[in-house]
């Protein structure tokens, strides 16, 4: 009897410990985010003197000033254009390649293995390492300082991972399905487009979230490929705004908030899909 209750106390203590860790982690991850939002509403005095809490009188004009001074409207527009074009190109290009790798019998598709390995070259060389020679290629193509150069480079950088992922989805579809479509008179393309691809929606969503978020947040390549101010994306614009020494700090925090909050809201609305999308590369099956 005594031992039993001892075990119970132990269990309870362990649960307490778990909650302690949980709450500590929660504070460490969430408080900095809240702190950023709090700071965005403060005036100069409170920014330095009321460090921890919320502003006593929230200043909305910080946001308006930040929006205007950092030209965030234009930056949002650029980021949206680039991310949308990126997805429009990436999804079909990756799907097409993944489909033939996954579904074409070897008798019809010689050197399939070699081509698949070639398509995965991007996994061997991580994104960004080749930034300097990529810049040289872009200059040589006469595409320097254009949105389309960024889009093309991004698509190329994400192709290998996307093809790898999509191949898995196509390969897992039952063979009978395609045979039935073929007997009904569908050609390869028709069965690819109308029968198989609609069934890979979860995969497409994963690629879209993973790639889209990465491109939306990308800084390194854009800082090298984009020179003119009117083409800057949000991360690029923010990094430059920060370097401006005359910046008014609450406005800087407002700019950070404006840049982050829409994505965070999107994430919270679709958190299951987001988490699945971003972790799918590392969890299999």
């Amino acid at each position: 009897m005594n031992r039993l209750s001892e075990g119970k106390t132990k269990k309870r203590l362990f649960l307490c410990f778990k909650y302690l860790v949980l709450i500590l982690m929660l504070i460490i991850t969430v408080y900095p985010v809240l702190w950023m939002i709090f700071g965005a509403f403060k005036d100069d005095y409170e920014f330095y003197n009321n460090i921890w809490g919320m502003a006593s009188e929230p200043r909305i004009e910080n946001f308006i000033n930040a929006w205007n001074r950092a030209d965030l409207g234009q930056k949002y527009l650029n980021s949206i254009i680039i991310t949308v074009l990126f997805l429009i190109l990436l999804l079909p290009i990756a799907s097409c390649a993944a489909y033939v790798i996954a579904r074409m019998p070897k008798s019809k598709f010689r050197c399939k293995e070699i081509i698949y390995l070639l398509l995965l070259v991007g996994i061997v060389i991580p994104r960004g390492v080749l930034a300097i020679p990529i810049y040289q290629v872009i200059v040589a193509l006469g595409l320097a300082n254009t949105r389309i150069s960024l889009v093309l480079v991004y698509v190329a950088q994400f192709l290998s991972f996307s093809i790898f992922l999509m191949r898995g989805y196509y390969a897992s579809l039952p063979k009978g399905l395609e045979d039935a479509a073929r007997i009904d008179g569908c050609g390869w393309f028709k069965s690819f487009w109308y029968v198989m691809t609609p069934l890979t929606k979860p995969g497409l969503l994963t690629v879209a979230i993973f790639g889209g978020l990465n491109v939306w947040n990308e800084y390194f390549l854009s800082s090298i490929l984009i020179r003119s101010q009117e083409l800057q994306t949000i991360p690029l614009g923010l990094a430059i705004f920060v370097d401006d020494h005359n910046v008014y700090y609450p406005e800087l925090f407002a700019a950070l908030t404006i840049a982050t909050v829409p994505v965070v809201i999107l994430y919270i609305i679709a958190q299951k899909k987001f988490i699945q999308g971003l972790t799918a590369g590392a969890v299999k099956g």
Binding site: I93, K108, G122, L130, Q136
Partner: peptide, 28 residues
């Protein structure tokens, strides 16, 4: 026809990877 189908399906991906991963490697 099958061969043309396969080539058109993989060509865009291969071209982009060549242009922005493989060729930069050699240019570098």
């Amino acid at each position: 026809r099958d061969r043309i189908f396969i080539i058109t399906m993989v060509a865009p991906a291969l071209i982009l990877l060549l242009a922005f991963v493989v060729i930069p490697l050699f240019i570098g």
